Computed example of a mutant assay.
Amino acid sequence: MSPRPDTAVAVRRFSRTERWVHRTTAALMGVCVLTAACLYVPQLAELVGRRALVVTLHKWTGLALPVPLLAGLASRALRTDLGHLNRFGPHDRTWLRAALHRDKRHASRPAGKFNAGQKLYASWIAGATLVMLGTGLMMWFTHLTPLLWRTSATFVHDWLALTIGIVLAGHIGMALADPESRKGMRTGSVSREWADREHPLWRR
């Protein structure tokens, strides 16, 4: 049975700028995670070698991490979507309750352009990135802060890096489980059927 014509039509989800920001940020984050692993996992450190180069690459990619988003703020589409991500409404609480109770019925999980899980992830990763940037700068410019601050910054930086790695793995796993969502980030468009099912409030 062929899909109805009105559900087969593609719906625009992300602009070219938004996709560029996502890809560039993902690439920088990937380099940060890989270089961090090479610095802290002995087997990888021995395999890669050239520690000084890895440290330099880690520092500069971490410093550049906010740049794509800041540059993308010139895009109205990106600013609008950031506004959507920053607003948490009653339907988001309903979505979270359904997710916590593992209710997989789509009617139980009302979502706008972004669901509550995506909003929480975006907020958390943004805050974690700022903390990593701040603690990283304290570890880099050692002469600007007292020893106690640097020691505390190292502790927070290391453990938060591990947490970010776990959260990113979950984010990637969920993306791999949803081909239509990946298509939206890759091409900018999704099917109307997927949009109506996964983000009904957005489609309305």
Rank of each mutant, 00 (worst) to 15 (best):
94 T>K: 15
73 L>C: 13
102 R>T: 03
127 G>T: 02
94 T>W: 05
134 G>P: 01
77 A>G: 13
67 V>D: 09
92 D>S: 08
61 T>N: 02
79 R>I: 03
107 A>F: 07
112 G>D: 11
83 G>C: 11
78 L>E: 11
74 A>S: 09
126 A>D: 00
78 L>I: 15
95 W>F: 11
84 H>R: 04
127 G>P: 01
114 F>D: 02
133 L>N: 05
128 A>L: 05
62 G>V: 06
96 L>S: 03
81 D>G: 10
58 H>N: 05
103 D>W: 03
98 A>W: 07
98 A>C: 10
98 A>S: 14
127 G>K: 02
96 L>F: 06
76 R>Q: 14
62 G>H: 01
119 K>Q: 01
120 L>S: 09
91 H>T: 10
133 L>F: 13
106 H>P: 01
99 A>I: 00
75 S>R: 07
60 W>Y: 14
92 D>L: 12
92 D>W: 11
71 A>R: 02
99 A>R: 12
135 T>S: 11
63 L>Q: 10
89 G>P: 03
106 H>S: 15
128 A>W: 01
58 H>T: 09
86 N>C: 13
107 A>Q: 12
106 H>V: 08
107 A>G: 09
137 L>N: 00
123 S>F: 06
89 G>E: 15
112 G>M: 04
118 Q>R: 06
90 P>N: 12
64 A>K: 07
79 R>C: 06
128 A>D: 11
84 H>N: 06
74 A>P: 02
75 S>M: 05
88 F>S: 07
118 Q>F: 07
122 A>D: 03
102 R>Q: 12
76 R>D: 13
87 R>G: 02
92 D>N: 13
129 T>R: 00
136 G>I: 00
117 G>H: 04
63 L>Y: 14
133 L>R: 00
128 A>F: 03
127 G>E: 07
126 A>G: 01
103 D>R: 10
121 Y>E: 05
71 A>D: 06
67 V>F: 12
130 L>S: 00
94 T>M: 08
109 R>K: 14
129 T>D: 11
59 K>V: 14
94 T>A: 15
81 D>P: 11
